[in-house]
Design a protein around this nucleic acid. Structure first.
Lengths: 174, 174
DNA sequence: CTTGTAAAACTAATGGTATTAGTTTATAGT
DNA sequence: ACTATAAACTAATACCATTAGTTTTACAAG
């Protein structure tokens, strides 16, 4: 195999670094190629198209999200800790978080679901109730991050407090 | 004033119709111009750029969302009815819903917040608690719609049931 | 009724995007 | 050393937004 120093992993990491440093909109064939000092068409030797690159980025980004959440201290309020870590990840690394979205369902996203499930054990929910609760929790957090990105909230009321209240409501309702 | 048959309203409605029929990605200067049988540069006589068009679209789309929610039967479970109407709007008219997001804060979005507030009156919350609850509710619903769009949920468990459970959890926690 | 002004259309051009086709280069294995 | 092939390349197509400069047209004033 000739000239195979360039791997899929290198391309994806380059693309993710671009997303993080310059925003997800900067993830273009031209920018990725520029970062790698190659021409855009060369990327098609490694990936079918940009969509495939973004899909591969999502899996890696989900992994990083998973790692960030796994290492959070559970403490007295595991659900609140998890929520804060999730929202912090999404807000402080918007390019990386956005990269994680086109991922669909896979092993990593399953692990992420399991992480939430672990924080819900003390509520001893039935299997289907648990699934609904996990979906609700993820919806809440993702919506919180995304609405913020779109300036959906007026800023004169404390955001961190809103998150705490929101998680509080959710926990009481479980 | 010469040739003023083309108004901002006509342009925005054309753009919204494009978003609804062909998806939000189809909202381009070229496509809007084509729909109006003019050339793309002519649009700059009416709007500064595409961003301004999208911002104007957002206000109109928010108005349509507001109208769709206002006309829902409150019934015995006003919060659940509102949630279902919101999610139905977002899922059945994805282009229009996406159009509504770049809107920021304005009179229409305030009216939308008021609509949610009205559905929360029976819980007699304090002013700041109410704001947090509204943010939580919107986050939940927007996140639910957006995660679904990104295929964030596995489809083997009933989605409608998840929505009902999620709202149920939220209501109990209030 | 002509004429001038200004709005709103136009054409042409620039520079950005993804993608495909076809060609060259370089390397790994025979 | 030779050959096959992966991986780079160039060139081209077809989109996209945007700007500059020009023409058209409709209305309002003389």
């Amino acid at each position: 195999m000739p000239r195979m120093q360039l791997t899929k992993t290198i391309i994806i990491n380059t693309a993710l670094s671009l997303a993080e440093k310059q925003g997800y909109e900067a993830v273009t064939m031209a920018n990725i190629a520029r970062s790698l000092s190659i021409k855009p068409p060369s990327l098609y030797n490694h990936f079918k198209n940009l969509e495939e690159i973004k899909h591969a980025m999502a899996e890696t980004a989900q992994k990083q999200l998973y790692e960030a959440l796994k290492s959070t201290e559970k403490g007295a309020q595991p659900l609140l800790s998890l929520a804060k870590a999730y929202v912090h990840f999404g807000s402080s690394r918007p390019g990386l978080y956005t990269s994680s979205l086109p991922g669909g369902t896979n092993e990593v996203s399953e692990a992420l679901v399991q992480l939430i499930a672990d924080s819900l054990t003390s509520y001893s929910l039935g299997e289907s109730k648990k699934i609904h609760a996990i979906r609700g929790f993820r919806s809440m957090l993702h919506g919180f991050i995304d609405l913020n990105k779109h300036e959906g909230f007026k800023l004169d009321v404390d955001l961190e407090k809103s998150l705490e209240e929101m998680v509080g409501i959710f926990e009481r309702g479980l």
